[in-house]
Design a protein around this nucleic acid. Structure first.
Lengths: 215, 215
DNA sequence: TAGATTGTTAATCGATTAACAATC
DNA sequence: TAGATTGTTAATCGATTAACAATC
């Protein structure tokens, strides 16, 4: 189904489409045109049609798009009914927040383990999953074969454990650390969340909109 | 100093430059050429020079860039020595993780309050700051005039409190909720962190690299 | 000075928008 | 059928890369 070389610009918009279509479904809306959707989302109708046509086009001339069907197609493209074995590294506030609030299962992931180097946390339950000491990582992976790791260790401490994880068969990283995994492992799937970069961007926006140095 | 209309593509790269330059400083490197930096960061030298020239250019022909000076310039552009009064809305795991781990002060922000609607959390200390019940928000803002709010309330519950915050003088949002603040308040600075979108993007990457449907 | 490397202009590439024929 | 709206091609816009003259 999926064509080669879909650009990242398009892919990055898909989750947002998925989200809006879900809202429409909740409102009982079954049909929508690219023009109506563009108004709701703040995009152009052209872009919406172009985006969907990367994957073959799911609409009908004169009618528009069926909301539920379109949402299902996007779900398929993203692979949201996958069940990728996933572990979280780091059970601090961030790791626990991610474990607690993210609907992993609705997004193609299956959270099966949480690890921390702090012995004191071992045994604590987070969302029904026990925190394990990091020393048990090797055994756990050999037994359960997770394919995705969520790196919730702030700072630059990631590198050694990162190599360990790759050797244990991890194929994808959701990376909250500053470690540049993609550079060292170009063959892996890496999605970075650089919270501090995002915060600095907000700082810039505040300055450029409300700062004194603005002419 | 700052020119008008610097494109967001450029701005989004600045925090990463800032981070890398900090690492170089730690290593005692005082001078670097666009070519060396490009190799380290995985960009082209052209792009680096173009980026810095949006702000006037900080290098010297035949020499390159002074690492410390360049870093300072980027800090100025981003406004990292600002001191924007900041409050966090939501003291769950996410709010506490953000409060604990983000170096707000190093990035132009001054965290002065944390609020939650859960009475049970009121009084608890997070990073030396007491969690306050949300009912005290009005009084607190009128007294302390925060200008930035960090929305750590998962889901779609943001809208009402969002309007309240705007009325209380909040000018910028670091938004972890799915609420589309920017659409309703185009005049404000809004930086969204859509964690679930990011996770879905990883799901796509896993599929397109390792999925069975790949030809 | 000679070598190196920037600042800056010009060329290329990719993404977005506009237009319209196809078709439901 | 007539009206609506897609799928798709062509035009525009913006961002990245290449090239090179300026200059330290």
């Amino acid at each position: 189904m999926a064509k080669y070389n879909i650009s990242m610009s398009v892919i990055k918009r898909l989750p947002r489409y998925y989200r809006f279509l879900g809202l429409l479904l909740d409102q009982g809306i079954t049909r929508i045109s690219s023009r109506e959707l563009s108004a709701k989302m703040g995009l152009t109708a052209s872009q919406i049609r172009q985006d969907f046509n990367c994957f073959g086009g799911f609409g009908q001339q004169g009618y528009g798009y069926n909301v539920e069907q379109l949402r299902n197609e996007i779900s398929k493209i993203l692979g949201l009914s996958n069940n990728l074995g996933t572990i979280i590294i780091g059970a601090g506030n961030l790791g626990r927040a991610i474990a607690t609030h993210m609907s992993f299962e609705e997004r193609g992931f299956n959270l099966i383990g949480i690890f921390d180097k702090n012995e004191a946390l071992a045994g604590e339950m987070v969302r029904g999953i026990p925190v394990r000491h990091i020393d048990g990582l090797d055994d756990f992976c050999r037994e359960n074969h997770p394919s995705v790791a969520v790196l919730c260790i702030p700072g630059e401490h990631g590198t050694p454990i990162e190599n360990q994880l790759v050797e244990l068969g991890i194929k994808g990283f959701w990376n909250f650390s500053h470690s540049d995994i993609a550079a060292r492992h170009p063959d892996l799937a890496v999605e970075n969340v650089h919270l501090s970069d995002s915060l600095m961007t907000l700082c810039y926006q505040m300055n450029s909109r409300f700062g004194k140095n603005d002419r």
